[in-house]
Simulated scan of single mutants.
Amino acid sequence: MTSRSPSRLLLDEMFSPTIASALRESGHTVVAVAERVDLRSMSDNEVFGWAAQEKSWLLTENVKDFRPILLQAIQTGATAPGLLFTSSRAFPRSRKNPGPLIEALDTWLRNGPPPPPIVEDWLIGPEAEPPR
């Protein structure tokens, strides 16, 4: 079994910096768009490019905008980050209880992203049934 290098993760703008902070306390390399002025002012294309440059996966609920950016990057041979999708349905955004999302991300980061050539993954909620 080969060991995977630690994953880096960028949290899109809808995710609280509290989540990034908690994951960093667990030893992960995580940045939240919402905690960095330079990232908050970027377009989706620029955030995607920043994540690619940093060799980071990007967590987002914004499938509608980021999947086409990913597909275009793949088609043109551009460097692309991995995209980790989730939804507010799977993990309701709550300042009072970010625990389930933090736990799921901690597990995902510890396990590592899917191996190449896979560039997309889904983080499902604790009560969701696994795909069959």
Rank of each mutant, 00 (worst) to 15 (best):
P6M: 14
P114H: 08
N45C: 00
E46D: 08
S21W: 12
N97V: 07
E127I: 07
S56D: 00
P115H: 09
S56M: 01
P115L: 02
L59T: 07
P17C: 06
S94P: 08
G49A: 15
L83V: 01
P115C: 05
S16Y: 05
S41K: 15
S26D: 15
A128L: 07
S94T: 08
T107G: 03
E103P: 00
A80Q: 07
A52N: 05
A73C: 04
F66E: 05
A104G: 11
D44M: 13
S16P: 02
N45M: 10
L10S: 02
R93L: 12
A80P: 01
N45E: 15
L109A: 11
A34G: 05
L71G: 10
V31W: 04
P92V: 14
T107L: 02
S87P: 08
W108G: 00
A32T: 12
A51D: 05
S26F: 11
T76R: 15
D44C: 06
K64V: 02
P113E: 08
R4H: 04
E13G: 10
E35W: 08
W57M: 10
I102S: 13
S16C: 10
P130S: 15
A51P: 10
A22P: 14
M1T: 02
M14A: 13
F66R: 03
T107Q: 09
L83P: 06
S7C: 13
R8L: 01
M1S: 15
S94G: 09
V47D: 00
N97G: 02
E129H: 09
H28N: 12
G27F: 10
P114G: 05
S94M: 11
M42K: 00
T86R: 03
S94E: 15
S7V: 10
R40G: 02
W57K: 00
S21M: 15
L123Y: 06
V47F: 05
V63F: 06
S5C: 14
K55V: 09
S5M: 13
G77N: 09
P81E: 04
I102C: 07
G125K: 01
Q53H: 06
Q53S: 03
I69M: 13
S56L: 03
Q53L: 06
E120S: 05
E61Q: 02
G77K: 11
A32M: 13
N111K: 08
E120K: 03
W50G: 12
G112Y: 07
H28K: 14
L101I: 01
Q53A: 08
K64M: 10
A32S: 15
S41C: 11
P115A: 15
P130Q: 12
Q72P: 03
L23S: 07
L101M: 04
I74A: 14
S3V: 03
D106E: 11
R36Q: 06
V119C: 12
E35H: 11
F66K: 04
P126I: 09
L9H: 04
G82W: 03
L123C: 11
G27T: 03
S26L: 14
D121P: 08
A90N: 14
F66Q: 06
